[in-house]
Simulated assay, not measured.
Amino acid sequence: MRVVIAGAGIVGRSIARELIGNGHRVLLVDRAPAAMKISSVPDAQWLLADACEVTSLQEADLADCDVVVAATGDDKANLVVSLLAKTEYGVPRTVARVNNPKNEWLFDEAWGVDVAVSTPRLMTALVEEAVSAGELVRLFTFQQGQTSMAEFTLDETSRVVGRTVAEVRLPEDTVLVAIVRGERPIAPDRDDRLEAGDHLMFLSSPAAEDALRTVLGSP
């Protein structure tokens, strides 16, 4: 897979190292000469250019790109890169970094964003997930905001404790994708019986989350 990353700061370089370690080809693009720390990711390709300009994206050969990651520290730039990648070059998948959670509502299909990643929101969700048994915590949203991944930790008062997966009537547009019990992930089977302390991972539409809370919560 070929990935172009706009923004060669700490975030962009970290993503690049992970992708290269997984066998992917990566091009890092940044307009700041000080960001050209080539020795920090020697196996990546590097391009000194402004990723918000069409000529730069042509030089980056986005037409031959599978994924564009807009990872700059500027939300406006990340939106422009995502929009150009999707509309001008038909890149199959765009992932955009959200620096200010107040701007998160902009990062949708109208701006060419397939997946928006808000680090502050994700960190908040992970903190809540660690301490909030009995609460539905949204971890992230993708597919232009139409699908979210959420986690619910069952406590002793949950109405589904002791039931099998098949006995739990989930809301429409909601799928149980994993049960984490202790440190072990479990692929849900209809005969698996739910226990207090189980971490349930769901894919659902954001509109279904209130109904999901009702299903899983205390009587």
Rank of each mutant, 00 (worst) to 15 (best):
L62K: 13
R121G: 10
K76T: 12
T153K: 07
A133M: 13
D191V: 11
Q146F: 10
A34N: 14
V160R: 04
S39T: 07
A8S: 11
P185F: 01
T214N: 03
V91E: 05
N99W: 11
D30I: 05
A6R: 02
L83P: 02
S118C: 00
V29I: 05
A71P: 02
G73A: 15
T119E: 11
L212D: 05
S40G: 01
S218Y: 12
L122Q: 07
S218G: 06
D64N: 15
A34L: 11
H199K: 14
T147S: 08
S158E: 11
E59Y: 07
L194A: 00
G197W: 12
S132A: 11
A49P: 00
V168F: 12
A16L: 13
E172A: 15
N99Q: 14
R181D: 02
L122G: 01
L212W: 15
V95T: 04
L176E: 11
C65S: 07
L106Q: 04
D64I: 04
T164V: 12
D61H: 05
H24Y: 05
V69Q: 10
F140D: 04
P171M: 08
T214M: 11
D189K: 15
R13D: 06
D108R: 14
R121E: 14
P171A: 15
K86A: 08
T119K: 04
D108P: 00
E167N: 08
D191S: 12
T119G: 12
L27A: 01
V113K: 02
L84P: 09
A187E: 02
F152C: 07
L83W: 02
A178N: 00
M1H: 09
L79Y: 06
A16R: 05
S205R: 08
V26I: 09
A51Y: 02
G112M: 13
S218F: 13
A85S: 13
T72I: 10
R31A: 14
M1G: 10
L83A: 11
A8C: 02
V41W: 10
M36P: 10
S14T: 13
Y89E: 00
V98L: 15
L139M: 13
V67D: 08
T153P: 00
L139K: 08
A96R: 05
Y89Q: 09
S56I: 11
A60H: 06
S118D: 03
A207T: 14
E53L: 14
V81N: 00
A8T: 03
P33W: 04
A211W: 04
L106G: 06
A166G: 11
V26T: 12
R93L: 06
L57Y: 02
M123P: 06
N22F: 12
V41R: 06
I38Q: 14
V4F: 05
A34I: 14
E151T: 10
T141S: 09
I5N: 09
T153W: 13
V215P: 03
T214W: 06
R193F: 10
G90H: 15
D64P: 00
L84W: 04
D30L: 02
K37N: 05
E128I: 00
A44G: 01
D191A: 13
T164D: 01
E128C: 15
T119Q: 10
L84N: 06
E156W: 04
E109D: 13
R13C: 08
V41Q: 06
I10S: 15
L139E: 01
G21N: 13
